[in-house]
Amino acid sequence: MPKRKNTSIKEYKLKSGAKRYMFKMYLGLNSKGKKVETTRRGFKSYAEAEEAYNQLNIEKADDFVKQKQITIDEMYGLWFNRYKTTVKESTANKTAINYRVHIKPIFGRQYMDQISVKDVQTWADKLATKLVKFNDPIFVLRSFYEYAIRMNYVASNPVNSIIMPSKTSRPRRDIEDNVYTRQELETFLKVAKNYNLRAYTYFKLLSSTGLRKSEALALTWDDIDFINNTINIDKTLAVGFDNKIQVQTPKSKSSVRQVPITKNLIPVLNEYKNSEKILSNKLFHTRKGQYLSLSKPAQWLQGVYDNAPKNLKHITIHGFRHTFATLLISETNVKPKTVQMLLGHSNIQMTLNIYTHVNEQNKKEAVNVLNELNI
């Protein structure tokens, strides 16, 4: 057995009889003239203790970070109090949910400096099998560590050392599976009109303008200009703390826009307005004239499908926005920048992705036509 040169490393035994190693170290005076000393224990081997000793030995007193200073739960409290003042309430609420559901159960009680890269990697890989937006909780945990480093609670960020998962077992639904053809849309709207005038108006609005779900729910009659036939989009609904509905600015600067009202949409809006028994400036509202919850359109959608032909494809609420864009591109000579403006996309790439989808559909159609031609 080779001689152990470091006499500062001592062997001791647990109550169970298992061997462990420890050491005490003096790192010098920090810039405030305070002695910096530390004791590390619990190492399962001399080699493990020696590696930790050598690593600490090269640290300056001012750079020293104590072990087990703060848990993830405690850091979340410090970090979130500052974070929530820098973002919209709905964004802060989503972050709080991400922490409560995906981070706290795994890491909440653990000390930040005791969480290894392997621990984070295992957690991230599992997230990618469950979530489409698995990046979100990973980025939140990364932010905790960046803040902790600045506050001198930890010396490094293990999240920066992981390999980000690139795949998920729950991929986003492809655009082509989440749009209607013109005929399918007409069938859906016919069923919707028989089901409920308010639901029909809502889905007619989405498919005629490409509005986002929450943008349409936030509309007031003041936003509808029947003289110039435009709709002003300058707000959206969101969920804040305690599940309270919030009216806030749209997703991005480009989301603030005006969209035209089509000739077919004008009589639908007028009919709906004239049918309203409760006076409210909001297009879609409760019996008390308040904004509806963000879950209401999903209830309407399910109600329509319960009354629709069984062979009618089911799409999501966001699918009506995709349908608007797809029909606009495939049936007109519209330019990408115009589509970007109408949809309120923050960058042209988002619009071009829809163009790519439409072009792929055109290629498939061309192949089918050539096969039928059979020259």
Score class of each variant (00 low, 15 high):
I375G: 09
Q110R: 10
N160D: 14
Y153G: 00
N6G: 10
E271S: 11
Q183T: 10
A325S: 06
K133P: 09
R41N: 13
L197P: 01
S330M: 11
I58H: 04
K167E: 15
D62F: 07
Q340I: 07
F134A: 03
N311D: 10
M164C: 12
H314Q: 11
K273Y: 15
S45Q: 08
I278G: 05
I354F: 01
E59T: 14
Y21W: 09
S166D: 13
W221N: 06
K310Y: 06
K94A: 06
Q69F: 06
E89Q: 10
E146C: 12
R150M: 15
Y202T: 08
S161D: 09
G28T: 11
N333T: 15
V369P: 01
S45C: 12
T7V: 14
T187S: 08
A308K: 02
V140K: 00
N368C: 15
H322R: 05
T236D: 05
I175V: 13
T91S: 03
M341L: 13
I149T: 03
G210N: 03
V140C: 04
V132R: 08
V179N: 00
N374W: 09
V358S: 03
T326M: 08
M22C: 12
V191K: 00
A199F: 00
G303N: 04
S252W: 08
F284V: 06
D73Y: 06
Q302M: 12
D222W: 15
T95E: 00
D234G: 09
L127V: 07
K263L: 14
I103R: 01
T122V: 15
S280P: 07
K104H: 07
G240I: 06
